[in-house]
Amino acid sequence: MIPSDYLSVALLIAGAIFFLAGTLGLLRFPDVYTRLHALTKADNVGLGLIVMGLVVQAESWAAVGKLLLIWVLVLLAGASVAHLVARGALQRGIRLWKR
């Protein structure tokens, strides 16, 4: 393994851990709003780290671009959908959990 491989491995594993965190949040958090926090942020960071881990290995600039394009699209869609779901939940009177 060359040094960039170690970086790639670290990024990929960190990404997977964030995906685990997203699922844990989805399962453990008490209401739809808090679950949205977990899912949107943790999964986007997880995917971002996996993309970075693969960018380190990429063979061409176009491949780097495609990976980044995928990530940006997921980010944009994820943030918008999170807002739409939360907004819909609030409009439909789903109460938020408070400690």
Binding site: L73, L76, A77, S80, H83, L84, R87
Partner: peptide, 11 residues
Amino acid sequence: GPVLDTLSRFL
């Protein structure tokens, strides 16, 4: 809502 509107225009 403006967020969905913008999303559809951009995508």
